[in-house]
Structure formats: structure tokens, C-alpha cells
Design a protein around this nucleic acid. Structure first.
Lengths: 215, 215
DNA sequence: GACCGGCCAGTACCTGGGTACCAGATCGGG
DNA sequence: CCCGATCTGGTACCCAGGTACTGGCCGGTC
């Protein structure tokens, strides 16, 4: 069962999305909100919401700002920004804000349902019309580095360890900082080296710096 | 014996500087030039010149450009840019071009002689009137890091080693790359760690990256 | 000439880094 | 409920990294 929240200031849109989603037996519309503040309150009240459909243009608090504030809430839902074609320039901002999907309102009902399922499964989704802009940005920022590919498959704890390696700490200091035994630290370090393809902690430290894990 | 070259398009200035410097028994005026191109030719002809007094405003090739091209010449002299008060805004450019001194022409004869001796001894000298601009720049670029203080006191060879550490190479690879024995590499590494205040090569690698030794 | 600093090199030694392998605890999902 | 992933911890082992000390060679200065 996928629990969905809908945040849009237009009653008609909320009703339309609700009708479409309720045709699916495994999707439940758990909350609706008419502005960003209501939306955040609803998410805080119901921590079981999996996916949120969020419009950019909303009173009180716009959709992008609301998405950013969502990061501070535990068990925050994955956000699909659903907006009009006029707002397609916001796609990069939406991604930067933490959205995991970007849909245009002129998409089909099937697209909407598919997007909800995709995002609920942990994937990401983009409307075809805006993928060009995203690819342009990716091209502008250069090809994917080994950093991008490797760092994201680390577990949270391994990421912690990698960040400390990048700060120049040795295993003893990492153990003290994270309240772990030396053995555990060594295990994490070994896993980090394997996953990042680094030969030793020096390479891992360089990787950590390039990935921006160190301030 | 300090050998000095004078580059200025005004005959009067060259003569005046020459008269002042020749009063000193340990200073020899070895060359004079009326433009930047002549100056570079003179330096190439006589590799024993220690100090060059260079005006900014010169025909053919200005003093700053000439100073920059000097870097490509082996045994290049240390440059003191000597210019009018109107050109004091160039002090940062002069330093960036590699000048080791910046004097205003309205300084005293004693100042000029002292500046030549100072620069010949490997120090740097600034006219009091322009130190403010330099300090402003220093403030704007932030306080000196441990990087600045430490890296510059490394020998050329030690700098090579540090750069390779920053690239993630281990001692064996550094030895191969520099055609050295493992023992020598270890010696250099130990010296680098001591001079940079790093505990191990990880810290040195971080330092190397922050210092821009790695591309 | 003596002296000094940089560079290169060697030996001997110890410690921390890294690997291999194993195992219990927890937890979310099918 | 079991499965897999994650986090934690342990033991045993090897080796690269780093230290300490020594010495020769060269180029410059005093």
C-alpha cells in the first residue's frame, strides 16, 4: 500500500489527482493540503506517507521551499513536483531542493500513477519534456566521476567513516569519534575501500574531498 | 658583489640610479635597457645579474610583461619594480608577475640601495605607501593557512614528493615515478611530514590538495 | 680550505593500516 | 517468519608506512 499526499492550492487539481489515484487498489490518498505550510503539518502528523505530489505555486509556502524543509523531518516522503508547463524551468531547482520526481500537469493519468509507483519504489522520474534541461546541466558539470558512482552506494555508517578519513583522522580517532571499537572501524574502512575502488585510505581521503564530504 | 640591471625608458632615470648605486663598493651596474625587450636580451646575455630595477611604463614590452617572461629564463634576477606614484595601483599585478620588490621613484637614494641589498639577500621589499593595498588583498583572501606557511619551506624535491602523495601514490610508485630508491622516498616523505606538521601521508595529501599541488 | 644545505641511499626497527574470516544483534520487507 | 542488509565486534596475520641514524656526493658560501 502506497500512501500519498497531495499539495496544491487548486481544489480541482486535488480532486482530479485524488480520483485518478483512488482507482488504484494499492494507492491510498492519505492527506491533502492547499499550501506548503498545511502540507508540512500533514506530513508531521502522519509519518507513514510515502509519496507527496507537490505543486510549485502555492500560497504561504511554495512547493520548492516546502520540499527543502521536508529534509528536516524524519520519515519524510519522497516528493514529486507536479506543476504546469510554464514552470518547467524550475526542474533544476526542484532537484536541488530534494525532489525525486518532476512531472508536468499535462501528463496522462497513467503517467501520474506510474510516477507514484516508481518513486515509491525508490527510483526517480522525470517528464520527458524537461529531461533535456537536466541533461544539459549534467553535461555542463562534466562527466560522472568515480566519486559519484562510488560514494552513493555506501551505507550511512560507511559514509561517516569516509568523511572522517577525508578529514585526516586515523582509525583510533575515528573509533573515538563514533564510539566504536577499532575492529568495527577497520571493517568499515575495508568496506569503504572496496566499494570506492581505493587502494588505501589516502585514495579514499582524496575521494572524500572531491565528493565534498569534508567542509 | 651584487650585479644590477636597470630597465627604464628615461635616460635621466637610468643615469640617476646608476650614480646612486655606483657609490656602493659592493654593487655593480652590469646592464641598462630602455625597453622590456632590450632588458630581456641583456638578462639572457649576462646570467650573473642578481637584481633588476624595472620600470612599468616602457615601450615595446612593459615592465610587468617583461617580469613575467623572465620566469622562463634560468638564473633570472630578482626584480624590483620601480615606478611612479601614479602606478602604485599595479603593485598587486607586479607581485603576481613575480616581482620581489615594489618601490616608488620618489623614495630616497638610501631606500633604493637598501632595497637592492634586501632583494639580493633573498628577501622582499615594499614601499610603505603601497603596503596598505597589499595587506587589504591579504585580508580579502583570508588568513594564512597552515598550507601557505608550510609548503613554501619545502625543497623542490620534497615538493615533488608531496604532490605525488596528494595524487594518492604510495612510496613504491613515487620511487618509480621519480627514479629514486624506496629509501630516498621515505627520507623525503619523513621530511615533508615534519615540515608540514602532518602526522601521516593522509594529512600531507589533504595539505597538497588544499595547496593546489594536484590538478 | 672548511662548511653547510640539498639530494640520494642504506640498514634496522616498530607501529598502524589493511585483509581474511567469523559471528551476534537488529531491522525492514517479501 | 525468514531473508538480507547493516552495524557491531573479535582474532590472527602481513606489510607498507614511518622513524632513527648513518653516510656519500655535489654545489654554493664564507
Amino acid at each position: 500500500m502506497i500512501r500519498v499526499a497531495i499539495a496544491d492550492d487548486q481544489q480541482l487539481i486535488r480532486d482530479g489527482f485524488g480520483l485518478i489515484l483512488r482507482t488504484q487498489p494499492d494507492i491510498h490518498v492519505a492527506a491533502e493540503a492547499a499550501d506548503g505550510r498545511q502540507f508540512l503539518d500533514a506530513v508531521r502528523r502522519d509519518p507513514r506517507i510515502d509519496v507527496a505530489l507537490v505543486d510549485i505555486r502555492m500560497p504561504v509556502l511554495d512547493g520548492l521551499q516546502a520540499t527543502r524543509e521536508l529534509a528536516a523531518i524524519p520519515h519524510a516522503p519522497a516528493v514529486i513536483v507536479v506543476t504546469t508547463f510554464d514552470d518547467d524551468a524550475y526542474v533544476l531547482d526542484a532537484i536541488a531542493s530534494g525532489a525525486r520526481g518532476f512531472l508536468l500537469k499535462r501528463c496522462s493519468a497513467a503517467d501520474l500513477v506510474a510516477a507514484v509507483r516508481t518513486v515509491a519504489a525508490g527510483e526517480a522520474v522525470l517528464s520527458a519534456e524537461v529531461t533535456g534541461a537536466v541533461l544539459d546541466r549534467v553535461r555542463a558539470t562534466g562527466p560522472a566521476t568515480r566519486v559519484d558512482l562510488a560514494v552513493h552506494q555506501l551505507t550511512p555508517r560507511e559514509t561517516d567513516v569516509l568523511a572522517l578519513i577525508g578529514a585526516g583522522l586515523n582509525n583510533t580517532e575515528i573509533a573515538e569519534r563514533l564510539y566504536l571499537s577499532m575492529s568495527t572501524v577497520k571493517t568499515h574502512v575495508t568496506n569503504v575501500l572496496a566499494k570506492t575502488g581505493s587502494r588505501d585510505r589516502v585514495g579514499a581521503a582524496i575521494l572524500a574531498i572531491q565528493a565534498g564530504l569534508t567542509p
